[in-house]
Write a protein that binds this DNA or RNA. Structure first.
Lengths: 119, 119
DNA sequence: TGGTATAGTATTAAAAAAGGTACTGTTACG
DNA sequence: CGTAACAGTACCTTTTTTAATACTATACCA
């Protein structure tokens, strides 16, 4: 594994939030309300069932997310954030703030690049 | 692209720091001292030349890192953090803190899993 | 009887990220 | 003359991540 202790800390933290959809899943669960599988799907219109399942399973294994099955038909499964998961909140927050501050810049750069490429 | 504005902010922020080696490269450059290519290699013993080049090029394009070539033989190229790159500092810091606080937990879980798998 | 809702799984394919190895040109050192 | 240091590039392979599509079981509703 990683020998460098500093790298190790980054890796540990990033593993918990990296994945195309993990930050938004966490963001929604951090609102506090438990969410059902299809509620999450509706909140993330572009995610496939498979990817949602995979990400939730991963986060469940990391104990960031709790999965509760209600033995009903039709099935009901609720996902909620754990206390451990809540500890990620400051990370999500700075990411969110930084992103908000710099989305414009990225946009600008992108448009600029597309223009200069035609020169 | 991402329709969801919240996701977009996360994506923007994460794109800048995600990449197996980007956080540590940034971490080292954030110390302030410009670093030469091979100085970075020595700081990241397991990275290949190729990956270091790729990551530096990407971060250069994003204006997180500045590349200065000194026309000498043997060649000398110095990499340093830009002001924009410095704005990532709070993100790196919370990640680092969270990681430091939770490396142990991960370690514990891992050992536990390895044990229970033999049951 | 057919359709809908739930929460998924299985299989395959495609795309993205990372890695491995060899190679470049120039100069200084011994 | 042989070798090392510098800062890479080229080419190819492997691994990881993400996506697309079809499929499952059960119950309720019309």
């Amino acid at each position: 594994m990683q020998k460098n202790p500093v790298q190790c800390q980054f890796v540990t933290a990033l593993n918990s939030i990296v994945g195309k959809w993990k930050p938004i899943i966490l963001y929604h669960l951090l609102q506090g309300k438990p969410l059902r599988f299809n509620e999450l799907r509706r909140l993330l219109p572009d995610i496939t069932q498979r990817m949602l399942t995979l990400h939730l399973r991963e986060m469940e294994e990391e104990e960031l997310v709790k999965r509760v099955i209600y033995p009903q038909i039709p099935p009901k499964v609720e996902y909620s954030i754990t206390e451990y998961g809540m500890s990620l909140s400051p990370i999500l927050e700075v990411l969110h703030q930084w992103g908000a501050a710099h989305v414009e810049r990225k946009q600008f750069n992108k448009e600029n690049n597309e223009q200069t490429e035609t020169d």
